[in-house]
Nucleic acid binder design. Structure first.
Length: 556
RNA sequence: GCGCCUAUAGCUCAGGGGAUAGAGCGUUGGUCUCCGGAACCAAGUGCAUAGGUUCGAAUCCUAUUAGGCGCGCCA
């Protein structure tokens, strides 16, 4: 338990004892006591609203209750310097904050581990994200999904969940046939032969390149081959090459997966049949118009859904249910899917299917990634300048850079439409929020270089650390101490963007402190203590940026 | 028509039931004999509308309005 948590727990316990001594309510009636940092400096270090919460149960007005609590509170036990009752009935505590210097020792000891906690209790979570069809390049929406998904996984991992990152490869549907047909057309074009391009074919450059590679490998061989053999081969080659490209691009974006799960593999075993049997056994299916239906309306879906079509083939839903069943059979306590905005209508039926299989509705969380609009020069950018096609992840990485792209995606809540301002993301100036945080880190290292030149070394000796007595120093230490809780709550809320918010706030506090206080001065001990504070700040910035996949340079 | 998401400052967005609603960009003014001015300090303007729950609502609930997306035996 961190020093900050210890202090808070101690104070909470004292408040609880005071409430009991005052005989306001019984022990069971006491709500969870909340201690929060007031926005207003003058309101002290921590405040509790417990008096207001007790009004109804104790049937007295909140200020009166607050008075009684304060009267009974043993102030000596919790390092309280001052207590005030304010506003509608807040109890504000001003603490002796010297204990906060221990935070520096914690950060120094834990280094890159600082921030991690056991909040998730090792719960096994499967996060499925990106999952783009192997039919082309990753576009803007995938890029956002990748950035948010990876950040979420890192946050969950740091918060003590057991995370598996998974990519579902849709390699079994019609789109794969279309991909093969597109490749076939490009192949014949590449050989200089006439071939009609399929109407709904994939027109990306990838197809042309892969066709060229096939020609390089096999020459005209496939032009003479049997049509179905040719298509089967093209499908296989296209799948492999496109997946490889996706994997490489994602790696360049600092996103990796633990498992790549092939939809086709479901067809190769009999898990889809098993799943259908189970749904039938549970009584949630029926036959109508020659098709097999899932009674998803039993679980709140708009309409029932077809599982097996008239022609005997499956809809997209059916193997997907089998896939989710498979995930759960692998022992995950919880599934999180990150889907594009256009799939939100799909959530209800998937949850219905899982419930039909006997799983609670909240086993599955679906995060919807809203659409991204790219802006440049105040105009919406629809096409890549380089290729003339839709803007891809690679375009973003090349033009904007990985750090800025990941920061921009991770800094927004995923369920809002995002305007991505390329000018802002690319500007190497104070306008760019990425640099603000990175600059704080680089600036600290600059101070280290300065200190080294003057022969002043950092020290974590408690006696030296006790020289930190400024309010701004305590504030900074407290902010650092809050980092693990911040990660844990971001994980619980499935809201990775909170980490960025935290880092931004921390950087603001640092820059402000830096402006007001000189670190390296004639006073050697004070300098050593301040260097320690800065080292901890840099460590936390580094740890936090790592969670969102952004580097923390020592110089910029 | 039905469903989901969204509505907060001129613009882009935070806001985890609490006190005087916050950042960035833009605008205006200030801070360098000194550790990096990619910084700091300050000014300025706002919770779509109407009800409800609560001691207390930007936050939870309902209705309305506006915008986005989705409503296939496609994937």
């Amino acid at each position: 338990m961190s020093v900050l948590t210890q202090m808070k727990e101690m104070l909470k316990e004292q408040i609880k004892q005071a409430i009991l001594q005052a005989e306001l309510v019984t022990e069971e009636q006491i709500p969870d006591i909340l201690l929060e940092v007031p926005k207003e400096r003058s309101h002290g270090d921590w405040a509790t609203n417990v008096a207001m919460q007790l009004t109804r149960i104790a049937r007295r007005n909140p200020r009166e209750i607050a008075n009684v609590i304060v009267e009974k509170l043993d102030q000596s036990k919790a390092q309280i310097r001052k207590i005030e009752i304010a506003g509608p009935g807040f109890i504000n505590f001003t603490m002796d904050r010297s204990f906060l210097t221990d935070v520096a020792l914690e950060v120094h000891k834990q280094k890159e581990e600082f921030g991690r906690s056991g909040a998730g209790k090792g719960e096994r979570v499967n996060v499925e994200f990106v999952s783009a069809n192997p039919t082309g390049s990753l576009h803007l929406g995938h890029a956002r999904g990748a950035a948010v998904g990876d950040a979420l996984c890192n946050v969950l991992d740091a918060a003590g969940y057991d995370v598996t990152r998974e990519y579902y490869i849709n390699d079994a549907g019609n789109q794969m046939n279309m991909m093969a047909l597109s490749l076939e057309a490009r192949y014949f074009e590449g050989l200089g032969m006439d071939w009609e391009f399929p109407e709904d074919g994939y027109r990306g450059q990838d197809m042309v390149q892969i066709a060229e590679q096939i020609i390089e490998m096999d020459g005209k061989k496939w032009a003479e081959a049997d049509g179905s053999e040719r298509l089967a081969y093209f499908q296989e080659v296209g799948r492999e090459k496109l997946l490889k490209k996706i994997e490489t691009d994602l790696k360049g974006f600092r996103v990796g997966f633990d498992k790549w799960f092939s939809e086709k593999s479901l067809y190769e075993s009999n898990v889809i049949e098993e799943t259908l049997e189970e749904l039938k056994k549970q009584g949630y299916t029926y036959e109508q118009d020659g098709a097999l239906w899932l009674r998803s309306t039993d679980f709140g879906d708009d309409k029932d859904r077809v599982l097996v079509k008239q022609d005997g083939s499956y809809t997209y839903l059916t193997p997907d249910i089998a896939y989710h069943r498979n995930k759960l059979s692998r022992g995950f306590d919880r599934l999180i899917n990150i889907w594009g905005a256009d799939h939100h209508g799909y959530i209800a039926r998937m949850k219905a299917a899982l419930q039909a299989l006997g799983h609670p509705a909240d086993t599955l969380d679906v995060m919807i990634i809203q659409i991204v609009k790219l802006f440049q020069g105040g105009e919406v950018v629809k096409m890549s300048k380089r290729t003339g096609k839709a803007v891809t992840l690679v375009d973003l990485m090349e033009e904007v850079g990985v750090d800025a792209t990941r920061y921009f995606f991770a800094m927004r809540s995923q369920d809002t439409h995002l305007d991505f301002d390329m000018d802002l993301a690319m500007s190497q100036s104070n306008e760019n929020p990425v640099y603000y945080v990175q600059y704080a880190h680089a600036r600290i290292h600059s101070v280290f270089r300065q200190a080294e030149e003057k022969g002043v070394a950092v020290s974590f000796d408690p006696a030296i650390l006790s020289r930190l007595t400024e309010d701004a120093e305590y504030d900074l230490l407290q902010k650092l101490a809050e980092f693990p809780d911040e990660i844990a709550s971001a994980a619980e809320a499935i809201a990775p963007h909170r980490v960025i918010r935290y880092l931004y706030d921390l950087s603001t506090q640092f820059h402000s402190y830096y402006g007001a206080h000189r670190v390296v001065t004639e006073d050697v001990e004070l300098s050593q203590a301040r260097l320690a504070l800065l080292e901890c700040t840099a460590q936390v910035i580094r740890n936090g940026l790592k969670l969102v996949g952004v580097t923390a340079p020592d110089r910029m």
